[in-house]
Computed example of a mutant assay.
Amino acid sequence: MTEKLSAARIKANKKWDDENRERKRYLNSRSAARGFIKNKATADDIEELTKLLANRKQELNLK
Rank of each mutant, 00 (worst) to 15 (best):
M1R: 14
M1I: 08
M1H: 07
T2F: 05
E3R: 15
E3V: 14
E3H: 14
E3M: 14
K4Q: 01
L5R: 14
L5F: 13
A7C: 03
A7F: 07
A8S: 03
I10F: 09
A12C: 09
N13Q: 04
N13M: 07
K14W: 00
K14T: 10
K15M: 05
K15Q: 08
W16Q: 00
W16M: 04
D17K: 08
D17M: 09
D17R: 07
D17C: 07
D18I: 00
E19Y: 01
R21Q: 14
R21E: 14
E22V: 11
R23D: 01
R23N: 05
K24N: 08
K24I: 12
K24D: 02
R25N: 08
R25T: 04
L27Q: 15
L27G: 10
L27H: 14
L27C: 13
L27A: 15
L27T: 10
L27I: 14
S29T: 15
R30C: 13
S31R: 15
S31T: 11
A32E: 15
A33D: 06
A33P: 04
R34M: 10
R34Y: 09
R34F: 11
G35L: 12
G35P: 02
F36Y: 15
F36A: 12
K38R: 15
K38I: 02
K38N: 11
K38C: 03
K40Q: 11
K40P: 03
K40C: 04
A41S: 08
A41P: 04
A41H: 09
T42L: 08
A43M: 06
D44H: 12
E47A: 14
E48H: 07
L49S: 02
K51S: 08
K51H: 09
K51P: 00
A54V: 05
A54I: 08
A54D: 09
K57H: 02
Q58L: 06
Q58F: 01
Q58P: 00
E59L: 07
E59N: 02
E59I: 02
L60W: 00
N61I: 05
K63C: 03
K63F: 06
